[in-house]
Computed example of a mutant assay.
Amino acid sequence: MILKRLALAATAVLAFATLSPASAQQVLKVGSTPTGVPFTFLDTKSNTIQGIMVDLITEIGKDAGFKVQIEPMQFSTLIASLTSNKIDLISAAMFITPQRKEVIDFSDPVYAYGEGLIVPASDTKNYTKFEDLKGTVVGAQVGTAFVEPLKQSGFFPEVKIYDTIPDILRDVNTKRLQAGFADYPILAYNLKQGMFPEVRLVESFKPSIVGSVGIGVRKSDTELLKKINASLAKLKADGTVDRILAKWGIKASGAS
C-alpha cells in the first residue's frame, strides 16, 4: 500500500513538472534590451524596461493567459539566453531572419523597417546607398542584421562593432566615427530627444536591409507560439497594436 501511494505521488509530481509554462499559466521570463528605445529601453525613473515590445508582449500575455517578467540583457545575448532556457521569450527590436530562424522560431511579424544612416551634422551630403560611403569607416551594433551586409559589401575599410546604439550615436556625435547604421526608428527616436545635437539622420538614404520584428520563441514551444500568434492577430484586428505604436511615436503604416 505504501509503495502504491509513493508511486501515485511520484506520478503526480512528474505530471506537474512536465506542464509547459503556457499550459500552467506561469509567469514567463521575457528577454528585452535596455538600449532599443522606443522598442525597449531602461526607464531610469522606474528602473524598469519599457517600450513598444514590452507593452505588446504584456497585452499578448493578458489575452493568451500568461504573465510576463521582463529580463534586461544585451541584444547579443538574447538568442543564447532563450535556447539555454534562461528566458522563455524574446520581445525586442529583433528582425526575423533566415539565420535566426534556424535556431529559434518567431511569431508573425509585428512591425517592418530598415536600417537608418547617421553622420556628423557637419556632413551635409545626401547619401542614398552604401556605395555613396565607399572608403568610410562605419559602425553597427553587435548581433544585428546589419553587420554582415556591411562587411560583405566591400565598400568599407572597417566596420566597427558597438555594444549599443547609443554608443554609435556618441561616437558620431564626437566625430570619432564617420557614419553609423542602426534600426531607423530607434535612431529617429533618440535624435528627437536632443541628446546628440551633432548627429544627423540622413533622410535621403534608402534602406537595403528591410525586415520585420517578431516575438522570439524556442522551437520546442509550438503550442506557446500558436497562442502568441492568435493573440497577436486579435490585437492587430482590434487596433491595440496600432495604439501601442502610436503611444511611442511610431507610424502604424509600418506594421505588417
Rank of each mutant, 00 (worst) to 15 (best):
M1F: 14
R5T: 14
L6D: 03
A15Y: 14
F16H: 12
F16Q: 14
L19W: 10
S20C: 10
S23L: 10
A24Y: 14
Q25K: 15
Q25F: 10
Q26K: 15
Q26S: 15
L28H: 08
L28C: 11
V30E: 03
G31D: 05
S32Q: 12
S32K: 05
S32V: 04
S32H: 07
T33K: 03
P34A: 00
P38S: 07
T40G: 03
F41Q: 04
L42D: 06
G51W: 00
I52W: 00
V54Q: 05
V54G: 05
L56H: 09
I57D: 02
E59D: 14
G61C: 00
D63T: 15
K67G: 11
K67V: 10
K67C: 05
K67S: 15
V68T: 15
Q69C: 10
M73C: 06
F75E: 08
T77Q: 10
A80I: 12
L82S: 01
L82P: 02
T83L: 03
K86S: 05
L89F: 01
I90A: 08
A92F: 01
A93T: 07
P98R: 06
Q99S: 15
Q99Y: 13
R100L: 06
E102A: 15
I104A: 10
S107Y: 08
S107V: 10
P109D: 11
P109G: 13
V110T: 08
Y111A: 00
G114N: 03
G114I: 08
G116S: 01
I118A: 13
A121V: 13
S122Y: 01
Y127I: 05
T128A: 14
K129D: 14
L133R: 12
T136V: 10
V137W: 03
G139D: 00
G139A: 00
A140F: 05
T144Y: 07
V147M: 11
Q152G: 02
F155W: 12
I161Q: 14
D163C: 00
T164F: 09
L169S: 00
V172E: 09
V172R: 08
N173I: 02
T174L: 11
K175C: 08
R176K: 15
L177A: 05
Q178R: 03
G180R: 10
G180V: 09
G180P: 09
G180D: 09
A188N: 14
N190Q: 14
L191P: 07
K192E: 13
G194Q: 04
P197E: 02
P197I: 05
V199D: 02
L201D: 04
V202C: 07
V202H: 08
E203L: 07
F205G: 01
G211K: 01
I215F: 12
V217N: 08
D221Y: 02
T222R: 13
E223W: 01
L224T: 08
K226H: 09
K227T: 11
I228V: 11
N229W: 04
A230H: 05
A233P: 05
A233W: 06
A233V: 06
L235E: 02
K236Q: 06
K236D: 04
A237P: 00
L245K: 06
S253G: 07
S253H: 04
S253M: 07
G254H: 05
S256V: 14
